[in-house]
Design a protein around this nucleic acid. Structure first.
Lengths: 228, 228
DNA sequence: TAGATTGTTAATCGATTAACAATC
DNA sequence: TAGATTGTTAATCGATTAACAATC
């Protein structure tokens, strides 16, 4: 009932702080203030301090946050060094791009196999990774105790894929299709609809166009800006 | 000062309703209730009705929303049929996947050129699209009156790319790099940090693991689920 | 010490959810 | 008509922002 648990936006910001702390530490900078971090992460010093209040460590008044130590604290808190295995279904352009995306390594994610139902794709390799038929997914996922699944198929295949993932014991699904798969309550789905992001950008542009003559609608800009 | 303007989450949900209305209409279904739409979009009937209150049209009591008409209303409201041109910088795997992404056509987005600074990539083609040097960006963008830019470069190149975009008159930037570019106030940046999304999934998995023995923490699950 | 910066509590804000009257 | 469903206003909730005491 009471609010245990860190808000999702804080979680994401912590990753941004982590990157900045680490790079500062590598440059030999020993401390960063909440103001420095806010600047790098596109937020406010108050927000940084609030976010840091979820961590099991404190900064130093008048000095700031020790870069190396806090990079480690966040690394720990977010579990960045834990090896997290995932499977990806849908070996199209987007699926392949994600399979080869270099940034995932830095957060400890490793995609271990791809799946697809296109006979043309099955048996191919994407980087080091094999492409297997979707049939093979549940047992492989179960055997390897994989908990994360990524869906980059078309909408019409997505529900069947999600079902297969759930059958194999996957608990967190990152869904790039436009369908919202139905899953049991204990499975988290994060829907990443790329088109809807563009709608947001295009809506902003239209609002600019409409409001250019009347001039300066700062309130509206602020409102749109803030929700990154 | 007062809250004009639709919330960003509503904007994105409208796109989901639109897809479902259109497909129902094509199947010959004439009406959908807020409950039907809620089910398809993963939200509640109340939320659907609230979102629809931003549209210049109403449903019918006891009947629901006419599918074809409401698909058109949303199409209009979101400007889906307006041709929106964009440029993309960073012709790596992710950039190419976005350039070839079929879903953008359905929301009226057209990526018209790619840019990159890698001499190996300049002059290549990605689908029908040419890859040009980043130097050429500002003048081309200005000449073509392009307002949307997509950044899929590494973090170290991102600020220079954003600057070039702003110089050419771009007003909305979709940024896939981990750097948060500094831009003038009238330019909207949407940051799409793929790794941070994974952090959310992995944090959820860890919370499950930690709480499996004590059993059933529905509050926590709900909280995490809801923020899609 | 004085003053910069942290940590935390309280106030605000915006979005979601609930309630319910209006309608066909 | 009775009852299902809409539209809208009010209540709740959660996250952000502001305020300020504590600290080095």
């Amino acid at each position: 009932m009471n609010n245990m648990g860190i808000p999702i936006p804080s979680l994401r910001r912590l990753l941004a702080y982590y990157r900045h702390l680490k790079s500062a530490s590598q440059k030999g900078l020993e401390f960063l203030s909440s103001g420095d971090l806010a600047l790098a992460a596109g937020t406010t010093p108050e927000q940084v301090r609030k976010d840091f209040s979820f961590l099991p460590s404190q900064g130093r008044s008048r000095v700031g946050y020790p870069t190396q130590k806090f990079a480690e604290i966040i690394e720990d808190y977010l579990g960045l060094m834990n090896d997290k295995e995932a499977v990806l279904v849908g070996a199209g352009n987007l699926g392949r791009a994600l399979a080869l995306y270099p940034g995932f390594e830095q957060v400890g994610l490793r995609i271990v196999v791809l799946f697809d139902n296109d006979p043309e794709k099955i048996g191919n390799k994407v980087g080091d990774l094999q492409v297997l038929p979707v049939d093979a997914l549940p047992s492989l996922v179960e055997r390897m105790l994989i908990r994360i699944g990524i869906i980059t198929t078309t909408a019409d295949a997505a529900q069947a894929v999600a079902d297969a993932m759930v059958a194999g014991g996957i608990k967190a699904i990152w869904n790039f299709s436009t369908l919202r798969p139905k899953v049991p309550d204990d499975v988290m789905v994060r829907n990443m609809d790329l088109s809807s992001e563009l709608i947001v950008l295009s809506h902003y542009i239209r609002s600019l166009g409409a409001q250019e003559p009347p001039k300066s609608l700062d309130d509206d800009l602020d409102r749109l800006e803030q929700a990154s």
